[in-house]
């Protein structure tokens, strides 16, 4: 067992177990705690999968941003300490059973695919991200270029499967940027609307 698979096993277990813990936990803050562990471990899995930038983004945005926001929400909406809103055991059991069934179905579909023999040689013999274009997790530059509309990792000069030029992800990037701005304004408005109502009411 190589170091890599050891680490993978560790973090995969951490991820899955924390996720289960999220489901089992009754307190919201504990859920948040386990969620941090789960998402952090996922970030570690990303690092292991040579996706440095995605892992760092996961840490910064998800763990450091989104979850803090969620905890804020917990605190602002808690009417007492250690708020618990219990679910009935029957519901939990039914949900668990259906979840297990779902997991089984997904497992069946994953294992049902012969990744080696799928048409188009879907599974590469090695990472398509070769040394030059960002092996060993050095994907920052290629990702950045992709977001700017350049694809250094793709052979699009005509020798590949098509002549179509690549535009990268410049347009989606811009759309997401605008989307974020809209969300920012929208969220601010939503959070603010109540206050003005109260002011007008009083």
């Amino acid at each position: 067992m190589s170091g890599h698979s050891l680490l993978f096993t560790f973090f995969a277990l951490a991820t899955c177990l924390s996720a289960v813990a999220v489901v089992i936990s009754q307190t919201v803050v504990r859920m948040a705690f386990w969620l941090i562990i789960s998402l952090g471990s996922t970030a570690a899995l990303f690092f292991l999968a040579d996706a440095d930038f995605v892992g760092a983004a996961q840490l910064l945005i998800y763990v450091g941003g989104t979850l803090v926001l969620l905890v804020f929400g917990v605190m602002l909406t808690a009417s007492g300490p250690y708020l618990k809103i219990e679910t009935s055991p029957g519901e939990t059991i039914i949900a668990g059973m259906i979840g297990l069934l779902f997991l089984f179905i997904v497992y069946a579909s994953i294992s049902g695919v012969d990744w080696k023999s799928t048409p188009g040689d879907a599974v590469a013999t090695d990472s398509p991200l070769d040394n030059r274009s960002g092996a060993d997790g050095q994907t920052l530059r290629p990702v950045g270029l992709s977001l700017l509309g350049l694809r250094p990792d793709k052979d699009l000069s005509g020798g590949g499967d098509g002549d179509q030029p690549s535009t990268g992800y410049l347009l989606p990037f811009e759309i997401v940027s605008v989307h974020l701005l809209v969300v920012l304004i929208g969220a601010a408005y939503l959070a603010r609307a109540k206050r003005t109502q109260q002011a007008s009411a009083s």
Binding site: A49, D50, A51, F53, V54, W115, G120, D121, A122, V123, A124, S127, P128, L129, G134, T139, P142, V143, S146, L147, R151, D153, K154, Y169
Partner: peptide, 11 residues
């Protein structure tokens, strides 16, 4: 990481 999807998956 493991298929020809390449950077697209990360993005």
């Amino acid at each position: 990481r493991y298929t020809k999807l390449g950077l697209d998956g990360q993005i």
